[in-house]
């Protein structure tokens, strides 16, 4: 199936029938809930029982917001699709939702938000759906206003489905240019289906890069559906490389050495053939650049 980003702009793609899937399809609901749980975990809010004020960017029908509500926090969400927000109203979500386009910048007061999450939304900014859209300007506006509205030391966790490495780089570079510190956490990097990339950003703290949370599923963990409990316990994995390590070049040991060459030359001389004299160059290895 082609990517939704290539089919239509988000406010059109997420029409009523598409939005309906977010209330009826248990599979979509389950996946969304899982990603939201993980994003919340990466948000690493202090565990002091004080409810925070969070922002959900691209909240859609409020599935991710429900996870936030379950944890006892207040949230506001924004989405560009009216149909999805209608579904959110039907579901009677606890947070406030508003119709807004993140590419136009977030219309929020500076320093007002304690943390932001976004599930599968930010990659939409990489596409120009209208003639007035310029992905780079929209990314810039989004990250600049996100940085502004976050409180000092707050984190933003953005789960993204980038189409290719260039989109990854573009999103990352605009996040960094806006002043964020942080990086990418890739869960299950070797699986094409379960692979999830989270952009974990923090504002106002530069010592963060060293303490980037660990990704899941890197060191040979399996990623079948039934290992949830194991996921929770097993945090021994490390930040992933984007590419698999290359197999080391085989060093074949059966190259014949100088002794063998000298022996053969002597055999030829014994047969009275013309053989070049033995010098220091005989059977010497060529330089690697050859």
């Amino acid at each position: 199936m082609p990517r939704p980003e290539l089919q239509a702009p988000p406010e059109i793609f997420y029409n009523e029938s598409e939005a309906r899937k977010y209330t009826t399809s248990s599979r979509i609901i389950e996946i969304q809930a899982k990603i939201s749980e993980r994003a919340y975990e990466l948000l690493a809010l202090p565990d002091d029982g004080v409810p925070r004020f969070l922002l959900d960017i691209g909240c859609g029908s409020g599935l991710s917001g429900e996870i936030i509500s379950e944890k006892g926090h207040h949230w506001i969400g924004l989405d560009v699709s009216p149909s999805m927000l209608d579904v959110a109203l039907e579901r009677e979500v606890d947070g406030d939702v508003m119709l807004a386009d993140m590419g136009q910048g977030l219309a929020l007061k500076p320093g007002s938000i304690d943390g932001a999450i976004s599930i599968s939304a930010v990659q939409w900014l990489c596409y120009a759906d209208k003639s007035a859209h310029q992905p780079r300007l929209r990314l810039k506006a989004f990250f600049a206003t996100l940085y502004r509205c976050l409180a000092r030391g707050a984190r933003a966790v953005l789960q993204i489905y980038a189409e290719n490495i260039h989109q990854h780089e573009m999103i990352m570079s605009y996040a960094m240019r806006s002043g964020f510190a942080g990086g990418m956490v890739v869960d299950w990097p070797h699986s094409s289906k379960a692979r999830k990339a989270y952009l974990v950003l923090t504002c106002g703290s530069t010592s963060f890069i060293s303490s980037l949370p660990k990704a899941k599923g890197v060191d040979g963990e399996t990623c079948s559906d039934g290992d949830d409990s194991e996921d929770e316990k097993n945090h021994t994995v490390c930040m992933s490389e984007r590419n698999r390590a290359r197999k080391k070049m085989k060093i074949t040991k059966n190259v014949k050495g100088k002794e063998w060459v000298l022996k053969k030359k002597q055999q030829m001389r014994n047969r009275e053939c013309s053989v070049p004299p033995d010098t220091k160059y005989t059977a010497r290895k060529r330089k690697s650049r050859f």
Binding site: F53, D96, M98, G105, A107, L108, K109, S112, I113, T145
Partner: peptide, 21 residues
């Protein structure tokens, strides 16, 4: 929309310097 949300919202039209409250 709760008043909490209203308290956080500002106007971000280009060129507007004081879009709050």
């Amino acid at each position: 929309m709760r008043l909490l949300t209203h308290n956080m919202l500002s106007c971000n039209i280009k060129g507007v310097t004081n879009g709050y409250p």
